[in-house]
Design a protein around this nucleic acid. Structure first.
Lengths: 191, 191
DNA sequence: CATCCTAGAAAACGAACGTTCTCTTACGGT
DNA sequence: ACCGTAAGAGAACGTTCGTTTTCTAGGATG
């Protein structure tokens, strides 16, 4: 059955266009042209643009988290594994066509009008936070460090996107290292 | 001349809609209805939707930076002035209808297809960075701290928007305080 | 060989949008 | 009072887009 292959062709083309240009800037005709799949078959597999957008977000969410986890797993030391997140961000920011986090972009564009998109962004960011929380716990760092590292990572994504430079990943890693060391030596933040 | 007043009425309505729903989700007719200004006059003042969008971004940029600077100016100590940025973010995140940074949202939606929007976002973020850099310099902190604080602030904006909670501002302030103290005591990050 | 079913290409449809035009109304100057 | 001007309300126009339909051809089946 080549249905699976056709679905992948559609999703590959859709992801490049939807992520690269923004969701509402891409028409179904552009996805048809890019994928080479006729409109009729396209609508047989994805009965609406909404369902295609949701499939795009689902697949991107899964792949993004999987790739991150795989990269982190190439490190052994718990502290290095925490910091490896930011090395991976640096690699991501250097990819051709990088245009920020697809979920932040989708949320900004459609979060107010589409609960499905808003929920998808929330779920993706929650999953990322959980991933980071596990790494923080494994490094014997206090749980509140997680929230701070999340902010550094999210800030790096948008700053890298808008500035067009991957450097924010390095700055985020520098800050993360400082916070990790400070937390590790037991100095808790106070007012 | 009530032209000025009409322009403000249009911009007020446009900002609430464009920021609140996303740019492409808002039609000129909705802006007409919300502002009460007839389409004919609307197009006399803003000859296209693009020009209205750019005016919206220009005005929001100026007001946002002005409000931030005004808030920071209510503090005296250089360190407090740096941290006040995050207190101000907390206030902003608590505003009704908060939906993240309008420039991050606009960039995600239209940055790839509209150089004007992309440049506007770049300029806004550069201006914010300069503002933070001045506060960092006044606090006798090293210049590289600026980039780290920028990431915390940007991350707090998107995280607060997607999670729907203002707490990221507090977490960002906690992290900023740690980084500021560490930097101030002369401990530079190393590998 | 005839027939039915499927699939691809592209036209077509209905809605929405950005933009312009028309029609009516009211006002200001002589 | 009269006429030129502008302004408001909304229809209209041309385009784009999501979605559906039509038309044509080929391939499997009896």
């Amino acid at each position: 059955m080549e249905l699976e292959a056709t679905e992948q062709r559609i999703l590959d083309a859709a992801e490049e266009l939807l992520y690269g240009r923004g969701i509402q800037s891409v028409g179904m005709d552009a996805i048809r042209t890019a994928s080479g799949v006729p409109l009729k078959r396209l609508y047989q597999i994805f009965p609406s643009k909404n369902s295609l957008v949701e499939a795009y977000l689902r697949r991107r969410d899964a792949r993004w988290l999987r790739d991150l986890a795989q990269y982190v797993d190439t490190y052994d030391s718990p502290e290095q594994r925490v910091l490896a997140v930011f090395d991976w961000l640096f690699l991501w920011f250097n990819e051709q066509g990088f245009r920020g986090c697809g979920f932040i972009n989708a949320f900004g564009e459609l979060g107010a009008t589409s609960p499905a998109v808003a929920d998808s962004a929330k779920a993706h960011k929650n999953a990322f936070r959980r991933c980071l929380a596990d790494l923080v716990a494994a490094a014997d760092a206090p749980a509140w460090l997680t929230d701070q590292l999340v902010l550094l990572a999210e800030g790096a994504m948008t700053t890298a996107a808008i500035s067009g430079s991957p450097e924010p990943a390095r700055h985020a890693k520098d800050a993360a290292r400082t916070l990790l060391r400070t937390a590790h030596t037991g100095i808790a933040p106070a007012d």
